[in-house]
């Protein structure tokens, strides 16, 4: 199934799906609404627990407001639900967090993630937040693949990694921002030194 044909729909754009299955409605932080099948929801541990706890019936879904997902925007959420619909019913892998992973990115996922880095970043955050193990798996692989064949200097630019000097500068800036009075005192001390005084007091 192509990315374009994945059965995630914006409510205002498409008709109610033909299949007689339980669907849930979700709303992104920019008020985009999505209708997602119960089976697709199971890919997300977070959402699955949420709908279970709510105990919604089909009528509830239609009559009550859509479930708000406050920290994910519509563009990202659409990708998430497209992925969930395409992979609905698939077994959820168990990540034991130990071995170096050999992960293959399926064609559908590769197309879905053919997006700019900003959106990819949001997608990974969303997959982590919603606890969608396999989406997180492939999206992390996508980011890891960016390191292939790169020199350290190139990696630094690809992943926007600060150098030691930049880290130091940021640390200093953070310290100064925490205590502006300390900076004032230091400047005053420097000024007095310039004027010839040895003692601050």
């Amino acid at each position: 199934m192509s990315v374009e044909n994945a059965p995630v729909v914006d409510v205002d754009e498409a008709a109610i799906p033909v299949e007689k299955k339980m669907y849930y409605r979700f709303e992104s932080n920019d008020k985009k609404e999505f209708r997602v099948s119960e089976l697709a929801i199971q890919q997300s541990e977070t959402l699955n627990r949420l709908v279970e706890a709510m105990g919604y019936t089909s009528e509830d879904v239609e009559n009550k407001p859509a479930i708000a997902i406050e920290n994910i925007d519509g563009k990202t959420l659409k990708l998430v639900f497209q992925w969930c619909e395409h992979h609905k019913g698939e077994a959820i892998p168990v990540d034991d967090g130990s071995v170096p992973k050999i992960v293959e990115i399926p064609e559908f996922d590769a197309k879905l993630m053919d997006i700019d880095n900003g959106l990819l970043f949001k997608l990974i955050w969303a997959a982590d937040y919603l606890n969608i193990v396999q989406l997180l798996n492939v999206s992390c692989k996508k980011v890891a693949n960016m390191a292939q064949g790169k020199t350290p200097a190139q990696l630094r630019r690809v992943y926007l990694l600060p150098s030691d000097e930049e880290d130091e500068a940021a640390k200093r800036a953070a310290q100064e921002a925490q205590d502006p009075r300390a900076r004032e005192v230091e400047e005053e001390f420097e000024e007095r030194k310039r004027q010839g005084g040895n003692s601050f007091f």
């Binding site: 880095n117 900003g118 970043f121 955050w125 980011v143 690809v158 992943y159 926007l160």
Partner: peptide, 14 residues
């Protein structure tokens, strides 16, 4: 090289 956009900060991931 940078993948079209410049805002994929590795250190900002959880």
């Amino acid at each position: 090289l940078l993948g079209g956009a410049h805002n994929l900060k590795l250190m900002d991931f959880p």
